[in-house]
Simulated assay, not measured.
Amino acid sequence: MTIHYLHHGGAGVRNPNWEMYPAAKPVAGVQLRPAAHKEPIAFGITRLLDFSQKDGRRQAGLQQYLERAANDGTPLQAGDTCTLSCVPARSLLLGYAWGVEVPEQGVSFDITLAQKGETLASGISGAAEGSNAELLDKPLWLPDGDVLAVTFNGFPAKGATDLTFWVTPIVIVPKIGN
């Protein structure tokens, strides 16, 4: 199983050729902040992954990372985890949402909190278009933040070519500014 660090936010990185990914590995206990352009008190830190390269949302950084990972012998595959959104330190996690915009056969995933190791949703099908949002039974205070991630239970052996999906934590940050 490989972890692919594709989240936005957290510590800066200096990748070869100024490549966007992999992002810096989140360290437990180090307070995380969202990407600088995502700073209001209540917000969605949506992370969309578009494997298709067919429209204006083409994600060159993602495609570049996937090519490098495949060349390095660690292609994205079933059992792998992708970090997607840094949940800020000192925030209240209310829930999560997800959506599959363009499905692909053979794809299924779980949504997790990477540092806590908690599964928020399991068995989501990426083979059918759909979306959902869920509130947690009890909001979760994250003094050090966390990272919303997906673990692929199923993923096409030759890689995804059409899949477009997104996930987002539903978060409130009580103290922003002074």
Results as ranks from 00 to 15, higher is better:
residue 2 T to E: 11
residue 4 H to W: 02
residue 5 Y to S: 01
residue 7 H to Q: 01
residue 10 G to H: 04
residue 10 G to D: 00
residue 11 A to P: 03
residue 11 A to S: 08
residue 12 G to F: 10
residue 13 V to R: 03
residue 14 R to C: 01
residue 15 N to Q: 09
residue 17 N to S: 15
residue 17 N to Y: 07
residue 17 N to I: 12
residue 19 E to D: 15
residue 21 Y to P: 02
residue 22 P to T: 07
residue 23 A to C: 08
residue 23 A to L: 02
residue 28 A to Y: 04
residue 29 G to W: 06
residue 29 G to A: 01
residue 29 G to K: 02
residue 30 V to T: 13
residue 31 Q to W: 01
residue 32 L to S: 06
residue 33 R to H: 15
residue 38 K to R: 15
residue 40 P to Q: 02
residue 42 A to H: 09
residue 45 I to N: 08
residue 51 F to E: 00
residue 53 Q to L: 06
residue 54 K to N: 15
residue 55 D to C: 12
residue 56 G to W: 12
residue 58 R to T: 12
residue 59 Q to C: 05
residue 61 G to P: 04
residue 61 G to K: 04
residue 63 Q to L: 12
residue 64 Q to H: 06
residue 65 Y to D: 09
residue 66 L to N: 03
residue 68 R to F: 09
residue 69 A to F: 04
residue 69 A to G: 11
residue 71 N to Y: 13
residue 73 G to S: 09
residue 74 T to P: 02
residue 74 T to G: 10
residue 76 L to S: 04
residue 76 L to A: 08
residue 77 Q to A: 15
residue 77 Q to W: 03
residue 80 D to G: 07
residue 80 D to N: 12
residue 81 T to E: 02
residue 86 C to H: 07
residue 87 V to M: 10
residue 88 P to T: 06
residue 99 G to F: 02
residue 100 V to E: 03
residue 100 V to C: 11
residue 101 E to L: 12
residue 103 P to Q: 02
residue 106 G to K: 12
residue 106 G to N: 00
residue 107 V to L: 11
residue 109 F to G: 02
residue 109 F to K: 09
residue 110 D to G: 10
residue 111 I to Y: 01
residue 112 T to P: 00
residue 112 T to I: 12
residue 113 L to S: 00
residue 115 Q to L: 15
residue 119 T to E: 06
residue 123 G to C: 08
residue 124 I to V: 14
residue 124 I to P: 04
residue 126 G to K: 01
residue 128 A to E: 15
residue 128 A to S: 14
residue 131 S to Q: 14
residue 132 N to R: 13
residue 133 A to G: 09
residue 137 D to I: 13
residue 138 K to H: 15
residue 139 P to D: 09
residue 140 L to H: 13
residue 140 L to Y: 11
residue 140 L to N: 09
residue 140 L to T: 12
residue 141 W to I: 14
residue 141 W to C: 12
residue 145 G to I: 04
residue 145 G to N: 12
residue 146 D to W: 03
residue 148 L to W: 05
residue 149 A to L: 10
residue 151 T to P: 10
residue 153 N to A: 13
residue 154 G to R: 07
residue 154 G to C: 09
residue 156 P to E: 04
residue 157 A to F: 08
residue 158 K to M: 07
residue 158 K to N: 13
residue 158 K to I: 10
residue 160 A to P: 01
residue 162 D to T: 10
residue 165 F to T: 05
residue 165 F to K: 04
residue 168 T to H: 06
residue 169 P to Y: 05
residue 170 I to N: 05
residue 171 V to S: 03
residue 173 V to A: 04
residue 173 V to M: 03
residue 173 V to S: 06
residue 173 V to H: 00
residue 174 P to T: 02
residue 175 K to T: 12
residue 176 I to D: 04
residue 176 I to N: 02
residue 177 G to D: 06
residue 177 G to W: 05
